[in-house]
Simulated assay, not measured.
Amino acid sequence: MSTDAITFHMVENGPTPVAPFSHATESGGFVFVTGQMPDQPGTPGVLPDTIEEQTDNVMSNLSTVLDGLGLGLQDVVMVRVFLTRFQQDYARFNAKYKTYFAEGCLPARTCVGVTGLAYDALVEIDLVVRRPTVS
């Protein structure tokens, strides 16, 4: 659905939303991907135990949304990360996170500790993506 210069995207077979939102919105060549949770499709609220496994699930859910929009992680320009156990998980999260991007091509990023996330998740990540221009 589109309103003026904003397009609201719900990706077929995308992650199950935990609240009323679109998977992504798009305007002016930028795509804003809603924060994704570390559950797997078909198992809302069922989460693995470790920060590494939860990070893998979040990145998989983000990739599903991006793929449904004809984009990929190589198009990401900004990442926001929310960790509920910041001191305990920060280093382990970073070790897993960096494996998703080509060396030297890490997007800008903010990472903050929070007091809680939906499903009592350890991590949530949202993205700002730039749609490549076609020449």
Rank of each mutant, 00 (worst) to 15 (best):
V123S: 05
F32L: 15
Q54D: 03
F101Y: 02
F8C: 08
A5S: 13
F86L: 11
K98D: 00
V123W: 09
P17F: 02
M10Q: 14
Q54L: 08
D89V: 04
G29N: 01
Q87R: 14
G42P: 04
N57K: 02
D49M: 04
Y97S: 08
V31M: 15
Q74D: 14
C105K: 13
R85Y: 00
Y100H: 13
G72K: 15
A95E: 04
H9F: 13
P41Q: 02
G104V: 01
I51H: 12
T55I: 06
T133D: 05
H23N: 12
I51K: 05
Y97C: 11
F101S: 00
C105W: 01
N57W: 02
S60L: 02
Y100S: 09
V18N: 08
V79G: 00
T3L: 14
V58H: 12
G14C: 10
T7K: 11
I6G: 03
V128Y: 06
A118I: 14
A24V: 12
V33A: 06
V76K: 04
N57R: 07
A91S: 14
L117M: 05
M1L: 09
M59K: 04
P107E: 10
V46F: 09
M37T: 13
V128I: 15
L62Q: 01
M1E: 07
P48G: 02
T110D: 06
V58M: 12
D67E: 15
R109N: 07
L66M: 13
G113I: 09
A24Y: 08
V123A: 06
A102M: 12
V114D: 01
D4T: 11
A118G: 08
A102S: 15
C111D: 09
L83W: 00
H9K: 08
A5T: 14
T43Q: 08
A5R: 14
L47W: 10
Y100Q: 11
V18E: 08
E26V: 00
P48F: 04
H23Y: 10
S2K: 14
F8A: 05
Q87E: 15
